[in-house]
């Protein structure tokens, strides 16, 4: 592991950059999160291989339309976040605030839709202990759900701080960090959606 990170080594041409946008500490965190999700996804897939019937049966009870809506919502939020970063790079902080709020709104919409799905399961008496499929479905989606909450809070804080004039074209590492984190949350769902809802 290279712990010796020098800030001076960065050439200005983007094609030569070595490190991703945002704080490197956050990228280490992203790596850890992605590892956990990778293990979770493979655990799902390999357990499914032993209970194909069971998984197919209960997969059919899930609401694919909600999942579609949620995927579009997350992608849209990610797009808004990209626009927020683009705006602050051009020093248009008012625009950045607007894009961030829109992204927060999208995150909230995701939570509403997913919450509606959970309410449905709860009413049907489905819990983590109902069967192996629901165990994985609820564990994976709830773990992701909490990530959306965290991501939403991060975007919210960034929106407030941008509004207070904390960031500029010259210094906006935090926004890039928050954006990277949000894209990670999106990325995970991009794999989760087909795996849990579609692939059978």
């Amino acid at each position: 592991m290279d712990m010796h990170i020098k800030t001076t080594e960065q050439p200005t041409r983007p094609a030569q950059r070595r490190y991703p946008p945002g704080d490197l500490a956050l990228w280490i965190f992203i790596l850890a999160e992605l590892s956990v999700f990778a293990v979770f996804f493979s655990a799902y897939a390999f357990t499914r291989a032993q209970h194909v019937e069971l998984f197919s049966t209960y997969q059919a009870t899930l609401d694919c339309n909600s999942a579609l809506a949620n995927t579009l919502v997350l992608i849209t939020a990610s797009f808004f976040v990209v626009r927020a970063v683009a705006a602050i790079q051009r020093d248009r902080s008012a625009e950045t605030v607007r894009w961030l709020w829109l992204a927060v709104l999208m995150a909230g919409l995701f939570l509403l839709i997913k919450g509606h799905e959970y309410a449905h399961h709860l009413a049907a008496g489905v819990t983590l202990s109902t069967n192996t499929f629901y165990m994985f479905y609820l564990s994976l989606t709830f773990f992701h759900f909490m990530h959306v909450i965290l991501g939403m809070l991060v975007l919210l804080v960034l929106a407030v701080r941008t509004r207070r004039g904390h960031y500029s074209a010259a210094e906006h590492t935090d926004i890039e960090s928050g954006a990277s984190y949000w894209h990670m949350v999106d990325l995970v769902w991009i794999v989760l959606f087909p795996l849990v809802y579609v692939m059978r």
Binding site: A15, F79, H183, L187, I190, V191, L195
Partner: peptide, 19 residues
């Protein structure tokens, strides 16, 4: 899905230009 993930990594996370 993997293709979509790749697009998010390359364009949204801006990993495209790194080495």
């Amino acid at each position: 899905a993997l293709l979509k993930g790749q697009m998010i990594g390359d364009w949204f996370m801006s990993l495209r230009g790194l080495r």
